[in-house]
């Protein structure tokens, strides 16, 4: 999602950074990171403005402190293997990328937009047809210029992930 996401996130930054960044920097006027309802609401509004996230009916469920959770309903139009009805890996990539970008943006040290540098996805098993896919992403480590993100995606069975992802995103402390 690359530069794309970055800029997307620049856009996001304008709207929500004030509310997502740690409260020491902007003490009074804005909601703190500890206000998940408000952050989720803002984030959802933001994600609703991204056409591709809407196209796939993605939902931002949780966000804050360098972590994010997003989910996407099963949809027959997203089938990648006609023999089994299993959703295409490409659809899961979009969810992982968006979720990773959201996690980076919400990191307390973040002061800027982000862009995906690269993203690797390992497909552990087939997602069960008919079930919602949920992704959880977190910033594993951030440096002055790079955020290393890990993410996992699950269906209703939370014991083994459907897919895991590791990515590098641009980051500005």
């Amino acid at each position: 999602m690359a530069r794309i996401h970055g800029l997307l996130c620049a856009y996001w930054g304008k709207i929500t950074r004030a509310r997502l960044v740690s409260s020491e920097k902007r003490p009074k006027k804005v909601a703190s990171v500890q206000d998940p309802d408000k952050n989720t609401k803002i984030a959802r509004q933001f994600f609703d403005a991204i056409p591709y996230c809407r196209t796939l009916n993605m939902r931002l469920d949780e966000i804050g402190a360098g972590q994010a959770e997003m989910s996407m309903p099963y949809d027959e139009r997203l089938i990648g293997d006609p023999a089994t009805g299993v959703i295409s890996g490409g659809a899961v990539s979009a969810l992982m990328d968006s979720c990773g970008g959201a996690a980076v943006i919400s990191h307390p040290d973040n002061t800027s937009a982000t862009a995906t540098i690269d993203l690797r996805i390992d497909y552990m098993r087939s997602a069960t047809p008919g079930q919602r896919i949920r992704a959880k992403a977190s910033c594993f480590h951030v440096t002055r210029s790079v955020a290393f993100v890990r993410a996992q995606a699950f269906d209703d069975d939370e014991t083994i992930p459907v897919a895991t992802a590791a990515g590098a995103f641009t980051f500005v402390k």
């Binding site: 999602m1 690359a2 530069r3 794309i4 996401h5 800029l7 997307l8 620049a10 856009y11 403005a49 991204i50 056409p51 591709y52 996230c53 196209t55 796939l56 990648g80 295409s88 890996g89 490409g90 659809a91 990539s93 979009a94 969810l95 992982m96 990328d97 968006s98 995906t116 993203l119 996805i121």
Partner: peptide, 27 residues
């Protein structure tokens, strides 16, 4: 198509759409 936009400001294609495109090309 406008449906594939990930950044409405630029606008630019969503990285997830790019990833799907490359993966399906490979498959």
């Amino acid at each position: 198509d406008d449906r594939f936009i990930g950044n409405p400001v630029l606008p630019a294609i969503h990285g997830g759409a790019t990833a799907a495109f490359l993966e399906l090309t490979a498959v």
